[in-house]
Design a protein around this nucleic acid. Sequence first.
DNA 1: AATAAAAATGTAAACGTTTACATTTTTATT
DNA 2: AATAAAAATGTAAACGTTTACATTTTTATT
Lengths: 335, 335
Amino acid sequence: MGGIKEIAKMTGVSLATVSRVFNNSALVSPKTREKVLKAAKDIDYRPNVMAAALRSGKSKIIGVIVPEVNNSFFSDIINGIEGVVSDSGFNIIISQTHEKQERENAALNSLLELNVDGILMSISKETKDYTQIQKIIDSKTPIVFFDRRPTLDAINAVLLNNYLGAYIATEHLIDMDCENILHIAGNPDVSIFEERKKGFVAAAQKHRVQYLVNHLPNIKSNPEEDLNSLKDILKKHPNIDGIFAYGDEMAIHLLNLLNTLKIEVPKQVKLIGFGNANFSALTQPSLSSIDQESSLMGELSANLLLQNLKRKTKPTAKVLSPKLIRRESTKNLDQ
Amino acid sequence: MGGIKEIAKMTGVSLATVSRVFNNSALVSPKTREKVLKAAKDIDYRPNVMAAALRSGKSKIIGVIVPEVNNSFFSDIINGIEGVVSDSGFNIIISQTHEKQERENAALNSLLELNVDGILMSISKETKDYTQIQKIIDSKTPIVFFDRRPTLDAINAVLLNNYLGAYIATEHLIDMDCENILHIAGNPDVSIFEERKKGFVAAAQKHRVQYLVNHLPNIKSNPEEDLNSLKDILKKHPNIDGIFAYGDEMAIHLLNLLNTLKIEVPKQVKLIGFGNANFSALTQPSLSSIDQESSLMGELSANLLLQNLKRKTKPTAKVLSPKLIRRESTKNLDQ
DNA sequence: AATAAAAATGTAAACGTTTACATTTTTATT
DNA sequence: AATAAAAATGTAAACGTTTACATTTTTATT
């Protein structure tokens, strides 16, 4: 037998009352509560979450969809989510999209079959078709986006002000006396990278410095090629004295490329990344960057979702302000 | 209404038959199968996994317990697990222990309440009491350990040969002409770190070189202090020419400390880490290390678990062989 | 065409909870 | 002490599937 039924039989009390005890209903006398709890301990009772979920319609599971789990940024976010969500007695199911729309849709579908109470997700770089997502928004399943959102109205989201982050990074280079700055930009299909580019351009124009935007798309597949492109750029624009890279990993590659070219950082060129990855403090020189408070972003998203689970609130988008992290790669040795 | 019942009504077929269609039972004629599938599509039917789980006792969920998700090694493992497990139609629930036994037990309990089909876990550094784990092993829930195992007999595990990894790393230093080597060891309560230490000692003794073992426990809380200890060690043993650190993060810190002390790597001292973290190729000089094939470890663990789900197999422990990754930090400039 | 075997389908109970509603017991009020 | 109100408990159905067993239909065999 096992389960609530056995406890009911043991204590001579009804199923309903036993259930009430485990759901902390106020409507049960201390005496019977104690009796039930004792019996539960005796048989090492473990409630069956699935059964409760089926009957109540609440699974106490939250689905999390990220592009990749083994990525410093997203794993920090998952850490933040896990913290608040598990404190509230929820479990998290994690799916990866590997930046593929097809996998994303499959993951969403799978989460719905599991009757998750809510969904936290960051859309893949590839995602253009929002019909599946729109269907979820239209349904009752609460969903909160973090970092990357679909371009749809009336959604819950926790985002980073990427424009501002890039603006701050660029201003920092200018503060450090850079007068001719280069931006290595990310995939223009991804909106957060486009915003960073815009922030860069805006700050450069505001302060009337020379600027340039470029891509180095082959850094992983063919670093040799990028080394040559970079060499060309620097040859064409020999007075470049500051570089803002769209991400920290790219920045570290740049650091190594510059080293290979015998260009000293920060003496000849100052360099700043974006993301404040875990390794950025460890390089030589250490890398200045823009912190995006990934763990906090996870926490806030989770809180927004939990709030939505209690009562359907108006869709809200929270925008976090990135912070400048000054390290050696942008140090002004003359100041 | 919704669900299987509605489809049954629409198609004029019984509940059982509809169920058979979705479970790919061979015992259903192509004609009715088609009819049912059509109806399912028409009402956008989504099976309720919870209900199926309750009735069948199979949740199609696998629990994963790791010390921290935002850790390069464990997130790689999760990536590996997710790949094989989701290909087989399972979902994963992830819990963090933050290296606390208490949280570990809570996570295990929570997974049992969810009726997970199996568990994949790496025990926390703190865990000494295995009663909860033993209870699970005794029950029917299959469990596989990865990387860190409890010292219990007859368990399923996928492990790294840490002794061998350390042995290889040490031999590599000796190959590169180091004659006086230092090991910066990890927390002696953690068995994998102890094995690394033993491997180091064994290789050093085998090749009859001078060696030394030390801890630098404050590197995160108080790097100044460790800088001084390191200075002391090197002063006392001025002919140290090779260092094997128990982990890559520690190794990178050492790299920076050595740089501060104006000791050139690899010219004066050669340095090798352990783990081949994602950032180890990015440092200057790049860090030699021991690769532990984290993603593969995840895949193998998941496969072992899936195998156990099909039919209870004899407990097996698979031991992976680590690989040497040669980079600049151990380059012999004379060779 | 009759019969046996195989394939397809159906019936109904069960998985372990929650919960609306009903009933009983206790407490407060006069 | 009688009555009303509040607190505690109980009854029974339901959540949406799966599955053992029974029955019907189809196919193969003579």
